[in-house]
């Protein structure tokens, strides 16, 4: 059974994952039995009573019901679904009632990345860092359309609504790095709206919290920029190889450095540091012709040094850069 669990499911990392998988296997085995009864019964009857070559067409039995069997068909499923229902609700209540000592992390969904705000004041993008064996309360909201926050290993999922909070919680029992998916369709970048949850031992988490935001201070600007490019989810919409996704490729911008770029309202501007900076902070003002202005503002998400780092990184890009 353990091997079957491993084959069918992702790892069981949250405290309720085991219970939910057991519920699955309860329904699974009950279903297999019912399914075999139907299929074997059907094949047996169809073959036993088949119309063979040379058989005479004749009147058949007038048997058309059996009260005992009908009651049986009614009662057995009724018992099974009652167990399933009670089990499902009991586990669900466990998943919805948040322990009092939970750490509260605020998750914001935005097309197409996740922002995580920690109680101590730090914030990360597309990377949720949590301590192991501690209940984590996740308070979700969205700034634009519906998203859904799904961590398969935790068996936890909740829709992320604009202008309304939703709540979920989990406690991880193993350190490691696991996937987060968006499961409510949210537009072009829906399938790229992935993130990671990094479960750390308690001690490491405390160190991480203390260092968060300052760890990168001594990196050279270009390297920091390269790091931010994926960390701040620029890569969801801007490629480095020249192909256009939701937004123009960084490579193209880099190659056009110093040249004029045309916007969708017919105006144009020279690509320079100021242009890139304002495009990151106020992306809705100048929208490159041929693109939809869907980028959110990064005001408050990047400090000056980080902006400089991204610009420096962008300027280093060449046709053959491999990142």
């Amino acid at each position: 059974m353990d091997r079957l669990t491993e084959y069918l499911f992702p790892k069981q990392v949250s405290s309720f994952a085991h219970d939910i998988d057991n519920l699955f296997f309860f329904i699974f085995y009950a279903s297999v039995v019912l399914f075999l009864i139907v299929v074997i019964g059907m094949m047996y009857l169809a073959i036993k009573y088949r119309f063979k070559k040379g058989d005479e067409v004749r009147l058949t039995s007038s048997l058309d019901h059996n009260t005992f069997l009908e009651v049986l068909f009614f009662v057995i499923p009724l018992i099974l679904v009652t167990i399933t229902f009670v089990w499902g609700i009991r586990s669900y209540l466990n998943m919805v009632i948040v322990p009092d000592d939970a750490i509260e992390i605020k998750v914001t969904g935005q097309s197409w990345f996740w922002t995580f705000d920690y109680p101590e004041g730090g914030s990360t993008l597309n990377e949720l860092v949590v301590p192991v064996e501690t209940p984590i309360k996740i308070v979700l909201s969205s700034t634009d359309v519906l998203h859904s926050f799904y961590i398969p290993v935790m068996r936890a999922k909740m829709d992320v609504l604009p202008n309304r909070y939703n709540v979920m919680w989990f406690d991880a029992n193993q350190a490691g790095e696991y996937e987060i998916f968006c499961t409510e369709y949210c537009g072009t970048g829906h399938s790229n709206m992935n993130a990671k949850v990094i479960v750390m031992p308690q001690k490491m988490y405390e160190v991480w919290l203390a260092e968060a935001g300052s760890a990168d201070d001594d990196l050279p600007l270009e390297e920091l920029g390269a790091k931010l490019y994926s960390k701040k989810a620029c890569n969801t919409c801007h490629t480095l190889d020249g192909t256009a996704l939701v937004g123009p490729s960084y490579l193209q911008t880099s190659q056009m450095w110093g040249q004029e770029r045309v916007f969708d309202d017919g105006s144009s501007a020279i690509i320079d540091e100021n242009y890139v900076r304002s495009s990151i902070l106020e992306p809705q003002i100048q929208i490159v012709a041929g693109y939809q202005g869907v980028m959110p503002t990064y005001q408050g998400l990047l400090n000056d040094r980080e902006l400089d780092a991204l610009i420096a990184f962008l300027k280093t890009l060449k046709e053959d850069s491999q990142i």
Binding site: F35, V39, V81, F85, G88, I89, Y92, K157, M158, T183
Partner: peptide, 27 residues
């Protein structure tokens, strides 16, 4: 139909159990 619909119907039971549906929803 009997074969396939039985599978379709039985898998509905998994989705009707709230706790399990939370994992399986939109997958």
């Amino acid at each position: 139909f009997l074969f396939l619909f039985t599978i379709g119907g039985l898998t509905g039971i998994f989705l009707g159990a709230v706790a399990l549906d939370i994992h399986l929803h939109d997958t």
